[in-house]
Write a protein that binds this DNA or RNA. Structure first.
Lengths: 214, 214, 214, 214
DNA sequence: GATGAATGAGTGTTCATTCAT
DNA sequence: CATGAATGAACACTCATTCAT
């Protein structure tokens, strides 16, 4: 059994590695070509596998896609929750910390946020197991909630003006995704420069000033 | 002669109407399905024409797409320029006016901004007459410049903090496109409500407060 | 009536001119692009008419095609018959005369011979009025017969070896069409030179020597 | 390893078989319908495959076409070179041998020679890898050169009149392609008979007599 | 577990042809 | 008589997906 067990574990590990490998390849391709244009064969080639093998690890092309998004959202909601729970920082500092956090997320997967939108717009979701959809919503909700609670903290301390916290969370989210969109379109012509960070930093500064009570 | 002329004019009008008709149909479909998923046949059906007829008015599927974008950008850049040139309003009031302006633009064509991005990412542009591309860039540039000048006015009057005007224009743009993105994804589940206006209004308020000198 | 009659005549003339105009345009286009690639719209544009107008003068795209071929064949068979009936020339001289004749035909319409073949190979003929088909065959037959009779003359005078005249006529025809084919393919790379005449002249010389009795 | 190797070899063989299968089907269809009229679906059906499968073995419809032509030209140029190098036959006998050779070629692929012309005329070549084009020209040139050398031999031995060898080679080529053209058009009405051989035999006889010195 | 081979269901686009005016 | 507008029917080609091995 020891042997069987170890083998099983190895197999599991191998499987996970393969999945990761495919996701990584898909991420790159969805990034450069977009979801519809990138073909399964492209992904397979990039992952050094046969197209058929992809279907051993994912039900669908859409499935790959959603898995990718879930990955990111998981990372994002974890980071935001941790930020919210952070004891040693005040609300202002936490907003300051968002700069770094968003930059990390962007580096983790630059285009996925935009893709995320696209997924919802397409009918791709209709062919997906419903559990994935709810998982998607759950994580997105969790992220926004963590964000909102940071504002609650600020308002409780009298540091922030009494805007609805949910709205503030939405706006932060909006600025982030908007900036990514904008960054990507700029990159078309200037592929080397990093426009995102300075711009987003300013935006968050202004935002902080804008919600801070005098 | 009068007759011939009138006929010619009528024909021109009819042609314009058809073009408009097709663009309208395409707008709806690109909106609901996205560019790649919406087929030319879909558009034709929506416009109550045969697929072949589409090609009497547009060279390409891409051509429809770009025409749609140019339409919007033209409208947008005109409105922004007018706002900048407006004599009877101070910079703060102009920023206030952006609320209504953006809402108008959104109603004019809700999803086109996102599509715009996608267009640049695809290789659709490679098959297009290069003049269209430059037209695209020209209009986008003009819009941002008008915006930036409003901030210049504000800074000249000592009302706005000395952030670089270009950066401010970018941030406004970012907030707007981000908000559209976010609105659209919300509409998936709540198709009736208008989330955009209140949220964008708050965002612009905060933004104005954030850049205003004490 | 005199007036009515004159008008009718004028109309007839006008019609013929239009037909000719269209045929001329079609000839040029079938020549440069080939039958399948040249579109009816191309022909219409070249003839300075609307596509629909073409159908007032011809039943079909195929109909244009066949009319073109009939034109040539008529010319060809007339010339060959005249040559056969020519009193003042001996058989050798008549074969010599073929050089000039073929060159004329080629100038009249360089590619039509090849097109002719293609027509037969396609199923274009099936949609045609059967009278045209028989007309086609009749003219082709007449041409070959005139040719054969020239050889009969030569054999009767003891100048030509006793090859079957029909076979000889076929061979002359073969050399001619083959040479046109070959010429055309050469023209692809050397569009200016006239390869046909010298080569066909040599071929006919050799042919004459080959069939002449010692 | 032996196993892997054998499998690889089998797979290669299978692939070659499929290619051959498709080429065979295409040959038949281009023959009966012509290149433009024969559809890829036709070819697929004839080859008992799906249209999509065709594209696993050929890049293009044009690619099929050119492959077919190259096949023939290769065969032809090899045979002609062998004939030229043949030690045990004099020039007259070699020309005699052309009869059989041409008949073989015709049986190998009756219509391809005509198609070859068409290929050059179309713009199909523009989408092809340029190496194929040069391969095409190389083989055609090689064939004609072998032919010309046979005449050089004959002239060196004083058996042939001093016509330019290149011209003679051209004429032989012309007679052959012309005869194929002619044969095909005859076959339309008499599909069973073989007109080509007797006529081409006579033509070559006359040709040989025509170039032989007295 | 992995893959090479195969395909069904589209997709954008073209074009000969028709018809109301 | 002439035409602008429209379309039905194809066609070459693609791609996500399956399955025997």
């Amino acid at each position: 059994m020891g042997i069987a067990e170890r083998r099983e574990r190895e197999r599991d590990l191998q499987q996970k590695r393969r999945r990761e490998q495919i996701l990584e390849a898909a991420k790159r391709l969805f990034h450069t070509k977009g979801f519809t244009v990138a073909t399964v064969e492209d992904i397979a080639k990039e992952a050094e596998l046969s197209p058929a093998a992809i279907y051993l690890y994912f039900k669908n092309k859409d499935d790959i896609y959603v898995s990718l998004n879930l990955q990111l959202l998981e990372y994002l909601s974890d980071r935001l929750e941790a930020l919210y729970l952070e004891k040693d920082a005040g609300p202002d500092q936490k907003i300051e910390a968002l700069k770094a956090l968003f930059h990390d997320i962007y580096n983790f997967d630059p285009l996925i946020l935009i893709n995320l939108f696209h997924l919802q717009a397409s009918d791709g979701l209709k062919t997906l197991p419903p559990e994935r959809l709810s998982q998607l919503n759950r994580l997105a909700g969790k992220s926004l909630r963590s964000l909102a609670r940071i504002f609650d903290q600020g308002k409780a301390e009298g540091r922030f003006a009494p805007y609805p916290s949910i709205a503030l969370a939405d706006i932060v989210w909006i600025m982030f995704t908007g900036a990514v969109l904008w960054e990507e379109s700029k990159r078309m012509t200037n592929p080397d420069k990093d426009f995102l960070k300075p711009t987003l930093d300013i935006a968050l500064d202004i935002f902080r000033r804008g919600i801070t009570t005098p």
